[in-house]
Amino acid sequence: MEKAKAFLDKLTEEEHERVSRLPFKNDFKFYEDFALLGMHVDLVKPGLVSCSFKVPPRLTDGNGNLASGAIANLVDEVGAAVIYVEGLPMNVSVDMSMSYLSTAKLHDELEITSRLLGRKGGYSGTLVLIKNKTTGEVIAEGRHSLFGKPASKM
């Protein structure tokens, strides 16, 4: 952390101005705001979350495809959203696995669906499916395991 602070102290005035224009809101973590900006929640039911997302330039690789790391991030975020319980601490990821089946291009509209596979105590499993909304083609499938404090039965 000290190295990062020291680096930021050495920015030129122009560099400092560019950093200050990064999309950051005080009520969100920078990372989540950057990665999920533009996502629309379409449906929320117990055990199911469905979102739509247009692939932005900031999440593409050098070939104009949605980056594999961005796909992993979507599995992480939307997979965690399906098990979120108001008032409890956020769960932590225990394990994630992704199957990359196709590519999504810049500006493709995606449908991201997360389903709860099961819950035992504080352990939950989710399945996240990322599809091209126009063609129906599956881009990726992810399984996400999380652990957190179980809800009280009282």
Score class of each variant (00 low, 15 high):
M1E: 13
A4C: 02
L8Q: 09
V19C: 05
L22S: 12
P23C: 01
N26R: 15
N26M: 13
D33T: 13
L36M: 05
G38Y: 00
M39R: 06
M39G: 02
V41N: 04
V41K: 06
G47S: 01
V55M: 04
D61V: 11
L66A: 09
S68V: 15
G69T: 13
G69Q: 10
I71R: 11
N73Y: 15
L74P: 01
V75F: 07
V78Y: 00
G79Q: 00
I83A: 05
V85S: 05
G87Q: 10
L88A: 10
M90I: 10
M90D: 14
V92S: 15
S93W: 01
D95A: 03
M98D: 11
S102T: 02
I112Y: 10
I112V: 14
R115P: 01
L117H: 04
R119L: 07
G121M: 08
G122D: 10
G122S: 08
S124Q: 07
S124H: 07
G125H: 06
T126K: 04
I130Q: 03
K131F: 01
N132F: 08
G136Q: 03
G136R: 04
I139T: 05
E141M: 11
R143E: 05
S145Y: 10
L146R: 15
F147R: 13
F147D: 06
F147L: 14
S152H: 12
